[in-house]
Design a protein around this nucleic acid. Sequence first.
RNA 1: GGUGCGGUAGCCAAGUGGUAAGGCCCGGGUCUGCAAAACCUGUAUUCGGCGGUUCGAUUCCGCCCCGCACCUCCA
Length: 497
Amino acid sequence: MAIELHDTLTRTRKTLVPSDGQTYRFYCCGPTVYGPAHIGNFRAFVAQDVLRRVLETDFLAHTAADAPPIVLKHVRNITDVDDKTIRTSQERGETLTAFTQRWTEKFHTDCAALNCLTPDVEPRATAHIPQQVALVENLLAGGFAYVGGDGSVYFKVSACSHYGELSHLDRDQLQTQTENSAGQANDADEYDRESVSDFALWKAHKPEDGDNQWPGPKNPATGESINGRPGWHLECSAMSTAYLGESFDLHGGGVDLCFPHHENEIAQSESASGQRPFCHHWFHNAHLMVEGKKMSKSLGNLYTLEELDAQGYSAQAVRYVLINGHYRSQLNFTFNGLTAAASALAKLEKALKPILDIIGMTPEEFRELCGKPSAMTVTGMFVRAWEHLSDDLNVPGALGDIFSCVGDLNDPSYSKSAIVGQLRSLAGLLYCLGLELYTTPEAPIVEAPEHVIQLAAQRWEAKQSRDFTAADALRAEIQAAGWIVLDRKDGYDLSPA
RNA sequence: GGUGCGGUAGCCAAGUGGUAAGGCCCGGGUCUGCAAAACCUGUAUUCGGCGGUUCGAUUCCGCCCCGCACCUCCA
């Protein structure tokens, strides 16, 4: 079955197929590395990860036997130069390179914890200056750009007839906005650019940029190189073209990037290449709210994975929360929800364990099965879940099906071979969702201290002689020592509190 | 002002022109001296409000109320 996904540009659902019939090429806007990414950032990356896993599975399963397999090529950039990276690195007294390198590594660590697959290419903006400069020169030569009053190069929006198509914003309306979303005045300096809508392609060097400058495009008027740095939108156009070509399959990002970022990317890329579409499908995820409010530094609700981990919430639970709301709906992140996610995952593990036992599969074996893409065709009861995933990535619907089916699977009338088949389908689905079960190793058997062992023995004796007052007192004493005693039918277990 | 999204049980969240998946929490039960665990089980006559279309609407249409997001450097 084909995967269908909503496309922002056409506002319709479209089937995902590689436009060249061989390689599905997609680009996602990656992080700006000036600090740890927060869970809102990760909603986008996790949503893209699920899409990638679903596509991978679909292509594996539906490539004709005699045809070369359809492969995916996933590119996600690292923005390592912009106002924030420059400013913050200077505040820390670090070079831009060292500073962004550090946060890039942190980003990788977090992605791994969230079980996000690594993109095939992860290009950095500063490593692709020549490509960006070439793009600007191309636009200058084509009459799509000009050098502004401040020496920076701007894109001339009026030269792009279909500008605004993606975000469906009326160009006349754009000019009425006087504040940006941060409540700051749009300090559009009309002396520098011809129109407020025009955006910077290349920013001429300013003293506050320090050493962070590169030889830029040649000023057509003087023939001299404009030293400076790339504008925000430029890198994505240049790097997507470099790795995926002038026209590729899908472009993803948070809904906020729709305008102006992606709109500007389209304008730049299509003007430069003369090719439309720049991209066949636009994939935008809605924002994450925190406890009913927009995340912001001033509200102090920008949670990072590290902070949540410190509070005892696993990255797996975070991932579950992030995917258990449809990607196009706003998701309200709450600690209540995080707890619920952890409980749900634990329930899945518990419910599955006896089923695995029936066929003699260990949890570790099952985890491995879930860890790799399979050419499986989802069959049997789990088909409904796959249909949900195929239908605009309906993860909440699929999860509901998974829970229902796992419950149904615990039926003695199923043969072992039937169970094996069903579990394969389930593993394939869990791979798509990127949910890892049984990651927490069995709690190591810790030997209780001698005095606790003795207390427990005394309590057992008291209990056997039905002296419950003494037994309860001893249990309290054991608990005070940091241990919990749990009775079985024929004895008891001691475990750390 | 422009654009878009949404209001479904205590919380979260799917969904459909024919009478509401799933998860969390909670209640009841079995078991237990108690507790925990485990297992079984229950929980929306109802889908923001009011009209309309229809044999029938939560699902389609209209109006209204409420919430949210984006509108030039935020995923």
